[in-house]
Amino acid sequence: MKLEFLFVPTADLGASLALYRDGLGFTELWREGDTTVALALPGCEVQIMLDANDPTAPVGPIFVVESVATFHANRPGALVVVEEPAAIPGGFQVTYREPGGATIQVIDQSTDAASE
Rank of each mutant, 00 (worst) to 15 (best):
K2L: 09
F5M: 08
P9M: 03
A11T: 00
D12L: 02
L13H: 01
L13F: 04
G14F: 02
G14A: 08
A15M: 03
S16E: 02
S16C: 06
L17I: 07
A18S: 13
L19F: 15
L19E: 12
L19C: 09
Y20T: 08
D22Y: 12
G23E: 06
G23M: 08
G23Q: 09
L24I: 09
L24C: 12
L24R: 07
L24K: 04
G25M: 06
G25D: 05
F26V: 03
T27K: 03
T27N: 04
E28R: 03
E28V: 09
L29W: 04
R31Y: 09
E32H: 07
E32A: 04
G33L: 12
T35F: 04
T36S: 00
V37W: 00
A38T: 15
A38L: 06
A38Y: 01
L39R: 01
L39T: 00
L39V: 02
A40N: 14
A40C: 12
L41F: 13
L41V: 14
P42H: 12
G43C: 05
G43V: 13
G43Y: 10
E45A: 14
V46M: 03
V46T: 14
I48Q: 07
D51M: 02
A52V: 11
D54T: 10
D54K: 12
P55V: 07
P55F: 07
T56S: 13
T56A: 13
A57R: 03
A57C: 06
V59S: 14
G60Y: 02
G60K: 03
G60Q: 04
V65T: 08
V65I: 10
V65C: 03
S67I: 11
V68P: 02
T70R: 08
T70Q: 08
F71Y: 12
F71K: 01
F71T: 04
H72I: 10
P76D: 15
G77V: 11
A78G: 13
L79N: 10
V80R: 14
V80G: 05
V81R: 11
E83C: 05
E84W: 07
P85Q: 02
I88V: 11
I88K: 01
I88H: 01
P89L: 03
P89G: 01
G90V: 05
G90C: 04
G91T: 10
G91R: 07
G91Q: 05
Q93M: 09
Q93R: 00
V94E: 05
T95C: 12
T95E: 12
Y96V: 14
Y96W: 11
R97I: 11
R97N: 09
E98D: 12
E98Q: 09
G100V: 05
G101F: 03
G101W: 06
T103I: 07
T103P: 00
T103M: 06
I104M: 06
I104H: 06
V106G: 02
V106P: 00
V106A: 03
I107W: 00
D108P: 13
D108T: 09
S110N: 14
S110F: 08
T111Y: 12
T111S: 15
A113G: 10
A113V: 15
A113F: 15
S115F: 10
S115M: 07
E116Q: 15
E116N: 14
E116D: 14
